[in-house]
C-alpha cells in the first residue's frame, strides 16, 4: 500500500526527516509516536504534499505510484487522506458544499459517475449521524465556530465519505475529551478494512487504547528509532521518550 524509502525532508528550510523507511500493507494499522519536534507532522505533510515541506531525498510510493512531484489533489485522488491536527476554517462555505466539492472531485478524477444531490445528502447524513453530528452542522461554514471535538469529527466525516486507501491521522486525538475520543476511534475502526490502511500519528498512548495498531514506530530526531507491537506504546507510556533515547538505537 505505502512504501517509504530513505525519505529526507526539510520544513521551513530545516532538515527534519533524516531517512525514514516504512512499509504499510493493506489491512494494517500503524502508529507513529514520538516527542514534539521528532518529525511526526512533517512526515504526514510530506506524504500529503504540503508546499512548505521539501523532500530532498528518498521516495514515497502509494499503491506503486511515486508521490514525489504530484500536486496535493493528485495524491488525494490516488487515495491519500490526511486528517489535520488543526483543521482550518472556511467561513461562508457550507460544510455540505465543501463535502460535495471534495467527493465530486474524486469521482471526476477517477472517472466515476457524479452522485445525485439526493443520494449524496443521504450518504452524508448517515455518516454524520454515526459520528453524532447534528444535521445543522452540515449547513454551517467549514469548521467555522466548531469546537475542537467537532472539528476532529468533521475530519473523520470527510474520511468516511472519501474512502481513501491510506488514511493518515495527524494527532487526531489531541484536544478531545474522552467521549469525543471514543466517537472518533469508533469512526476509524469502522473505516479500517482489509482494503485500506491507517497511519496514526500521536504523541500519547491513550488513542491506542481505542484503536489497536498492528505496529508501533517511535520517531526520534527524524528517524524511526524503534518498531514494535502494541506493547511498545505501553512501555513508552511508562518510561517516556527520554529513556528510549538514552538506551540508544
Amino acid at each position: 500500500m505505502l512504501e517509504i524509502t530513505d525519505l529526507h525532508a526539510r520544513a521551513a528550510g530545516k532538515p527534519i526527516l533524516k531517512g525514514i523507511d516504512l512499509v504499510v500493507r493493506p489491512g494494517e494499522v500503524h502508529a507513529i509516536m514520538g516527542p514534539n519536534g521528532s518529525g511526526k507532522s512533517t512526515l504526514a505533510n510530506a506524504l500529503a504534499g504540503r508546499p512548505d515541506v521539501e523532500v530532498t531525498a528518498g521516495d514515497m510510493r502509494l499503491v506503486g505510484t511515486s508521490l514525489i512531484g504530484l500536486a496535493p489533489e493528485e495524491r488525494a485522488h490516488l487515495g491519500l487522506f490526511l486528517a489535520f491536527q488543526y483543521p482550518v476554517e472556511i467561513p461562508g462555505v457550507s460544510n455540505m458544499e465543501f463535502l460535495k466539492a471534495a467527493v465530486d472531485s474524486h469521482n471526476k478524477a477517477l472517472e466515476r459517475d457524479e452522485l445525485s444531490a439526493a443520494s449524496f445528502v443521504a450518504l452524508v447524513r448517515e455518516a454524520a449521524s454515526r459520528l453524532h453530528l447534528a444535521p445543522e452542522f452540515l449547513r454551517r461554514g467549514v469548521n467555522a465556530g466548531f469546537s475542537g471535538g467537532e472539528k476532529k469529527r468533521n475530519e473523520i466525516l470527510q474520511m468516511l465519505l472519501l474512502e481513501p486507501r491510506l488514511a493518515v491521522l495527524d494527532e487526531t486525538d489531541s484536544g478531545l475529551d474522552i467521549d469525543a475520543l471514543r466517537t472518533v476511534a469508533s469512526g476509524v475502526n469502522a473505516f479500517a478494512s482489509e482494503a485500506n490502511a491507517v497511519l496514526l500519528i500521536t504523541h500519547y498512548q491513550r488513542l491506542l487504547d481505542h484503536i489497536t495498531p498492528d505496529f508501533v514506530h517511535v520517531l526520534l530526531d527524524g528517524r524511526i528509532a524503534r518498531t514494535g507491537d502494541k506493547s511498545l506504546a505501553h512501555a513508552l507510556e511508562a518510561d517516556g521518550y527520554a529513556r528510549l533515547a538514552e538506551s540508544g538505537t
Binding site: 489533489e73 483543521p87 482550518v88 476554517e89 466539492a101
Partner: peptide, 23 residues
C-alpha cells in the same frame, strides 16, 4: 485553507473560487 481543499481533492482554482464565493 488552500491546502485543506487540495488535500480533499479540490483543485486550487476551484478552491479559491469556493472560498471567495463563501466570503
Amino acid at each position: 485553507q488552500l491546502f485543506l481543499c487540495q488535500q480533499r481533492g479540490i483543485d486550487p482554482e476551484k478552491a479559491i473560487s469556493m472560498i471567495v464565493n463563501g466570503f
